[in-house]
Nucleic acid binder design. Structure first.
Lengths: 202, 202
DNA sequence: CGACACTCCATACCATGGTATAGTGGCGGG
DNA sequence: CCCGCCACTATACCATGGTATGGAGTGTCG
């Protein structure tokens, strides 16, 4: 798990450097940004990562940014840090899905623990999403008919029934079925059903 | 969703009565407890519910109780309320899965919104768990051999392969297979695979 | 002991699934 | 225009799945 990248978003240069040194000291890579805008515009690596986000920032506040992560198409776990905290602020951050909410000064180890948790969570998400993306792209290579047949098959319909539903001959259904099994890269109906579950073809 | 029960755990009688009146006014049922112990010992209804939990309580504190819900086999969503809050306390509660963390005095509507959220979450959990319990109980009526065959079948193995793995004749496998399909109450392999997924028979 | 449940096997029969071969027709891009 | 892709069909053949019937050995429990 040493391949993680920690994106530090904080406009306090001294603090940034301190965090940077701390996080690097445990073998993680870091990238520092002085504002939300700078972070959003930057390229992010396609490896497990997390954001250490200050609340008080020039431009968009850390919390507003956190609430809008989805709109920026960012799904990195967030750890919020702040010097001036109150309870409603922390509750808002946690409700919005923050991994942790730390008030300065905090213990180094608390931050490192939260970072480890966040990176683990992101690694898991990436694994799941990579898997899903693979399956989804395969599904999209299916012709419309094949997709139709696949939906019927995973619904437990027999070839004969599928043929009736789609006004086809049974042979044609078998043809599409064989073809889609190849394209989906599965060798058993059981595997196909599992793919369909991930794709939510309920 | 008007069938929910709100369990209020608070030792302040006046506050309890106020909460009770507020929550009843929107058509929800309530049960009041002055301590964690009183709540734990009481019988809970088998309908969607949630806990409104004060932090400061005689005996076990609200937060300690929340951290140990699993040990009491309680899976109700929790809304924490408190008169004396600090940031670490709120973060701890939210990390432990609280739906919300409200500091007195709070707006009535905020509490009611959180309760609605909590009840919806619990209703969803109950639906999923009821479904799972049904499937699990069916699975447990299977004989050891039938369970074995089921695991092989949902792994995508052919009857012939299952027979080889378990040192059986193919007919016997078919026999168990037919029997387990009946007992599981499914009519297609697709449905069986979905059951297996819920049971995590990976 | 007897009833019962579980396990197993054989034979037979039919339905279903899967693949191959061969051919028809539509449709769009190089 | 021709090629490739998609969609469809027919025939044929073999593998696999599913059910029924009949029978047998084991262990448990009342």
């Amino acid at each position: 798990m040493t391949g993680g990248v920690v994106y530090i978003v904080d406009d306090d240069v001294a603090l940034c450097e301190g965090l940077d040194a701390l996080i690097r000291s445990v073998g993680l890579r870091t990238r520092c940004f002085a504002s939300v805008a700078a972070f959003v515009e930057a390229e992010r690596e396609e490896v497990a990562g997390c954001i250490v986000l200050d609340v008080r920032l020039p431009g968009m506040s850390g919390l507003d940014f956190q609430s809008n992560l989805q709109r920026f198409d960012i799904r990195l776990p967030v750890i919020v840090i702040t010097g001036f905290a109150d309870v409603p602020m922390s509750v808002r951050a946690m409700k919005a899905g923050a991994v942790d909410f730390l008030t300065k000064p905090f213990r180094d180890q608390d931050l490192l623990d939260s970072i480890a948790m966040a990176l683990a969570r992101d690694a898991e998400r990436r694994a799941a999403e990579g898997n899903l993306a693979e399956i989804r792209s395969r599904y999209e290579t299916l012709t419309p008919r094949e997709q139709q047949v696949m939906r019927e098959v995973v619904a437990g319909r027999l070839n004969k029934q599928v043929a009736g539903d789609l006004q086809l001959s049974e042979v044609t259904v078998k043809l599409h079925r064989g073809s889609l099994m190849r394209k989906m890269g599965v060798r058993s109906l059981a595997d196909l059903v599992r793919c369909a579950e991930l794709l939510k073809l309920a």
